[in-house]
Design a protein around this nucleic acid. Structure first.
Lengths: 207, 207
DNA sequence: GTCTATACACAGATAGAC
DNA sequence: GTCTATCTGTGTATAGAC
């Protein structure tokens, strides 16, 4: 505990970390292009010029934000897959874990999801590649659950995976920390809709 | 057919309409703040200064884009509700219609969904109010389907509605017109997931 | 309705003292 | 590691001729 802790607290963070956290907040609120380095510096309590001692430039902040976020997600996915045995159950764990992470760090996740376009083509490709790796983990899990007879096979695993991410990703934009439902409740709710559907009865179901 | 047609074709459109369409493309690709009036003028084939003969300013474009899009959605919702009888069936029509509209006009929809934050507080509130009206129409439909015993009641209509929009909205960001699935196929697929769920069998279902 | 020319503000980034 | 001062490019928007 000497240095470089990843404490969520805003105190005793290095200036570099506070810049990243501040950038996430501003990028989410105003977009990458709409945020100025002066605003960010002011938020962290330094002058605009001092920022360049810590970061190569504005784009570096976005790049690191995206990569760090995707790495965290990858860690969650990998460990859940390693620990799980039942495919469908593991998929549920993965989905809930992803949502929890996304809602806990909405600034970084929202930025990663919407501001990739602002990166240079090279970095954009790099970030998208890493994101696709994460998606592939989930898609493989969906396919495994299909093979195990737990998930419907009339829809390709690719599209079931996209549907699942649809369901989870958009929550970041309406979730309200002061709302009636917390991360877990929303995670359970969305997972229920994904796995069991909204309809009641077997009116439209063919089994 | 004298003038002012809303033809989808890019020809014989008024400069004002072409500016709106161009703005939607650029705002989606680069974000509102990341787009310059010079780029937009160049895209339409006029000088930057000429733009101000047609529009009050850059923000006006975003504002009109958002309002127009939400009005189109409202029209779709209202007519589907008026024409439908069975609540669940109507909800399906509404969901598919919304997705079709969104995928047909991805530039405008994506801009409306992600760039509201760039509007002035007043206009932002106005746009959000109009958007919430649209959501309310769907939520009322969900509630009606619940009362009719067609939709599960253990999840509040509010959250089922949010889940449905999650499922639909995020598609705009990954849909590929050259992909294997067209609007209708994706609409059917997502509606199936929403109503029936991804799981097979009644493993986790309590009825 | 479109143009050229331009005003004015502010962006990202650097130089070099402390 | 932070500062002040500043460079340079570019943004939105206007003025006024055609």
């Amino acid at each position: 505990m000497t240095d470089g802790e990843t404490t969520p607290a805003e105190t005793d963070q290095s200036t570099g970390e506070r810049l990243l956290a501040g950038a996430a907040v501003l990028f989410r609120e105003q977009g990458y292009a709409g945020t100025t380095t002066r605003q960010l510096a002011a938020l962290v309590g330094i002058q605009n010029a001092s920022l360049y001692h810590h970061v190569g430039g504005k784009e570096d902040l976005l790049y690191r934000l995206c990569m760090d976020t995707l790495d965290s997600v990858a860690a969650t996915f990998t460990s859940a897959v390693a620990a799980g045995t039942d495919p469908l159950e593991t998929l549920g764990t993965v989905a809930r874990g992803y949502l929890d992470q996304a809602l806990n760090d909405r600034d970084r996740h929202a930025t990663m999801l919407t501001e990739i376009r602002s990166l240079s083509p090279q970095r954009q490709a790099e970030v998208i590649g890493r994101r696709d790796k994460n998606v592939a983990i989930v898609q493989e899990l969906v396919a495994k659950a299909q093979r195990a007879g737990q998930v419907r096979k009339d829809i390709d695993a690719k599209y079931l995976t996209l549907a699942l991410f649809n369901l989870l990703n958009w929550s970041i934009f309406w979730f309200n920390p002061e709302g009636e439902l917390d991360h877990t409740a929303i995670g359970n709710l969305l997972w229920t809709v994904f796995s069991d559907g909204a309809a009641k009865g077997d009116s439209k179901r063919k089994r």
